[in-house]
Design a protein around this nucleic acid. Sequence first.
DNA 1: TTAGGGTTAG
Length: 632
Amino acid sequence: MFKSKTPKTFPSNYATIRYSSATSIVDPTTHQELHQHTFSNQPNDIQQIPTSHFSEYLDPKFYLSQLLKCKRVYQVKQVHAQITTNGLFENLIVANKLLYIYSLHKSLDYAYALFCSLSEKNAVSWSVMVGGYAKAGDFLNSLRIFREYIRSGDKPDNYTLPFVIRVCRDTMDLQMGRKIHNVVCKNGLESDVFVVAALVDMYSKCKVINDAKQLFDKMPKRDLVTWTVMIGACTECGDPSEALVLFDQMREEGVVVPDKVALVNVVNACAKIGAMHKAKVVHEYIVRNKFSLDVILGTAMVDMYAKCGSVDVAREVFDGLREKNVITWSAMIGAYGYHGQGHKAIDMFPVMLRSGIFPNKITFVSLLYACSHSGLVEEGKRLFNSMQKEFGVKPDVKHFTCMVDLLGRAGKIDESLELIDNMAVEKDEGLWGALLGACRIHGHVELAEKAARSLIELQPQNPGHYVLLSNIYAKAGKWQDVAKIRELMTHQKLKKIPGWTWIEVDNKIHRFSIGDHTHPRSKEIYEKLKYLLEELEAVGYVPDTNFVLHDVDEELKLGNLFSHSEKLAIAFGLISTPEQSTIRIMKNLRVCGDCHTFCKFVSQITSRVIVVRDANRFHHFKEGACSCGDYW
DNA sequence: TTAGGGTTAG
């Protein structure tokens, strides 16, 4: 490696010349020398250059290998100086490698200056610049260079295009993405694995899965990355079950062999579905195929088990990991949080610090979330106050949202409002949503209206906001206001998001909606429910019709409650799984309050543990109580 | 010189 005075790789007969005089780099747009200060104050100011013309110094391969060894930018500059001195700058292979190494070291200014000074450029030179800017997140410059390249009359190729497509993905610019897709077609690159992988990924991040799937389906030959991107796309676009189907298809074809990255995508799909059996099957596959759990796959596994309902297994995986970083710790802290084990979450924090891991923004979001979902008000305040002072992490709107949630849930609405009034961070829909949630719990109709107005102003097209306000009116018996909201929604052509509940039985996922009669065992399910309700009412369960948000008579309300998707799934679980076994269900919306009470009673009379994953968190029902302590 | 990997509020 290069040292400032006598590098071991060089012979001893050096002459000393000024580095800057050999390689001053000038920005072609301003004609000023770049970063001159970086030359003058460093021990590497003086560079040793060999004078004897050993063939080694005239051989481009020597410089290519030297460039690859560089770990710091100043070392690249040293080799750059040697290249210039020895007259190899005109060699395009050497010049392009230099461009690439500068961009790898995020020295795009140097790369660009060098790029402009080249008397001759080839496709590689252009690609390296487009890619360098894209990777550095300088999207404007990346696109600018790409346009210049096209204007120069050359054809974009399978190197340049993935970089530009990456820009479209990172900026979520679907319109531009489609334009680039046209360029791909015009240049006959629609089957190139690199280009298609990039396009599929771009369409996936822009949430247009059909376009991604079309491209993927048309490919004559797919490689591992293309499969992986497509599997990830399904999860990204809300169809994680399809992701698992694709993974099976990929293995059945037998052309490519999955690697760790593919498995991370599969593990993510399982986490999204929340199905424990599938999680175990994937875990077994990972063990059987001897994949070691590196920090990324390990973290994904921790997250998967937690999101499939077992925070204990997640902890076992966590404890077994050789390497853990701040993401792993944050995932575990977050898991305890959404499973309602706030104390365990905050107890992990000092352990994490002692193991030398420094918290980031997400660690604090997870900690504060854990506090708010376990009612740990003082602990939450203490953490919130310490995050900037002790750890230099500036609270952003998400941290304020957790605090509003924490205070609001605890009934401290005034403190919550004070925090909102004094915060110096831009307010978003999540923040108003937290306040609205607190109003819902504590029945503050007027304040709820204020929060809902702010929400609707920010996102007029989100039906969830209207539904929340409507729920609050319904709870207060303000049926005229409920009707107004409904009219407003009809006028805006907004529809409520339909509620679904899933349950995994015999490795198959069964889905229920409200009043669903489509299941093959529907008759038995309704019979079981009817029988169950009689039993429950005998031990004190009273259906809570406040959670039926229609202005209908009581009898109809009861009928509505009776067929909520959560109840149908639980009844099916009871008739189709062994006695004593845990029932795990997943709901796409927040669990209904009456169903929450229902679950408590069912866990009591059947001696079953019921684990419910709703849109926000987990509820573990056991012996008539919920792990959330009714604090949700 | 090209494409794919983990945690977060409401």
